Amino acid sequence: MNAFQQRLVAFDVSLYYLCFGTCRLSVMSIASRLISKLGNGGVYLATGLLLAWFELEDGADFLMTGLVLFAIELPVYIFLKKAIKRDRPCDRFDDVTPQITPADKFSLPSGHAAAAFVFATALTYYYPSLMLPAYTLASLIALSRVFLGVHYPTDIIAGAALGLSSSVIGLSLLGLV
């Protein structure tokens, strides 16, 4: 590892400890758990189905677009997790006890961050007035994963970048941008 990479890793670990230390407050831990659960896939699917059912103008298109965007993001996410194999902070450091049980072994990229940004991008495309709350919630979902001890800050940045880039590619392939 060269000097720049060492500095980047040191900064990432320092920032991680700052965030994770904040979550040791019980209110932050509870809030982070609740926010993180919003990033589970079922919430996105349920929202898409509800919009398809009740929002007649764009709901069905939103659901179909979301499915295409997730179909692009998910295999790339799985490939990157298996190729990079970065240990989670809770597995690397003895003084870190995660606040939740991670779904898999590796941390880079954050799947919650990737999915949250895919969803926020699709939502913003069809409902532009929801841009600020959608991306705010996506950011909070991503940050909650650091607060809970299962991701480094660079994991969530990589996840957000994956979600955004998958969305742009998908929207382009669908001829929407």
Rank of each mutant, 00 (worst) to 15 (best):
L50F: 14
Y126A: 08
M64S: 14
P102Q: 04
I72R: 01
L38I: 02
L56K: 15
F106D: 07
E55C: 11
S14N: 05
T121E: 13
A103D: 14
K82D: 06
V76H: 01
S32E: 00
K85V: 10
V27G: 04
P109T: 06
D87C: 00
R88C: 02
L108W: 02
K85E: 13
A122R: 04
C19H: 03
A10G: 02
S110P: 09
F54P: 04
S32F: 04
A31E: 03
L63D: 07
L80K: 00
L50H: 10
L74R: 10
I84K: 00
F106P: 08
P98R: 00
A52L: 09
D94K: 07
F70K: 00
D87Y: 00
Y127W: 11
M28P: 08
L25H: 10
I72Q: 04
L51F: 15
V43M: 12
G66R: 06
S29A: 09
P109D: 05
Y44D: 14
K37V: 09
M28L: 12
I78W: 07
A114D: 07
A46P: 12
G42N: 09
E55L: 11
C90M: 02
T97S: 10
A10C: 02
T47R: 01
D95L: 02
G42Q: 04
F70I: 08
T47A: 15
L108N: 00
T65G: 13
N40E: 14
F70C: 05
A52C: 12
V9T: 05
V96N: 10
S32V: 02
A103N: 07
H112A: 10
W53P: 08
A46T: 15
Y126G: 07
C19A: 13
H112N: 08
L34F: 15
S14D: 06
A10H: 08
E55F: 09
N40K: 04
L74C: 11
I78A: 10
A52T: 14
L69F: 06
A52I: 09
R88M: 03
T47Y: 11
A114E: 05
W53F: 15
F20E: 14
S107E: 06
S14P: 01
W53D: 12
L108Q: 00
V96A: 05
A71N: 08
P98Q: 01
R24N: 08
E55R: 03
G41F: 13
A10V: 00
A120V: 07
G21N: 13
Y44C: 11
V43I: 06
T124W: 12
P128F: 13
K105W: 02
V68H: 13
V96G: 13
G59L: 03
G66I: 08
L50Y: 14
P109W: 02
L15S: 09
A114P: 04
T101G: 05
A114T: 03
D104I: 02
E57R: 07
I100D: 09
S129H: 12
T124L: 03
G48Q: 03
D87M: 00
P102S: 04
R24S: 05
V96C: 11
D95N: 14
N40I: 01
A71S: 15
G59E: 05
S29M: 01
I84Q: 05
D87I: 00
